[in-house]
Amino acid sequence: MVSLPQRMRKLQTKLLAIRLGSGALVLPKDVKRIHMRFAQKIDGGHMGPRKFWRHELVRLKYHNPAVSMTIDRTASADDPALMSVHFAPADAPQTSEDSATSAPTPVTSTTQDSSPSSDTAAPTDRVQTIDMKHRTNSEILTELQRLTKAFPVEPTPEEREEIQMLEDHRVRSARDSKLSQEVRARQKREKELLEQARGDVASQAA
């Protein structure tokens, strides 16, 4: 078991990576759902979507916990890689949507049909799609930001301090590790030389 401070530093680093970084955006209120559909493997330009999911979508979800984000990876490599952003209709009350997504159904088509949640109120959602094929995760992010007019999250002073503290510690620890590595290598060498010398003496005495 590692010591508690060590454990907590590692946890802090992990949680900071969830909170801050690329993709830390606060979406406007009318975004109800984000659905991505891309292939299981990266061939044919499906790498960007996966990277986006692994890196940016985590932070997006942290800052927008109420927005349902689903992924469908049953597409084949030839299919388009699409991200559909569902907006609530401008005049509808913003409450009726959540029940539809509580059990994320395998949405088969994510194109403009906008009928996956049939039980929502009469005005259907406005759905806009982003083509993600052959695009990197950062390109997808800028496209999403442009589409939804989301604004990025800036680190607070405390978070900046925390980042600085962790960074300082990383530097210090790398330096110390190098130092002690040298010391251990030297001690090992001395020991070997000593062993060798002892062996020589013993063989001559015999």
Binding site: M8, I18, V58, Y62, T70, I71
Partner: peptide, 19 residues
């Protein structure tokens, strides 16, 4: 130790389980 309330912990966990 850094400790969390249930809702805060769930928020982090849901973010890392997204998709």
């Amino acid at each position: 130790a850094i400790q969390f309330s249930l809702v805060d912990a769930m928020r982090y966990i849901r973010a890392s389980e997204v998709g």
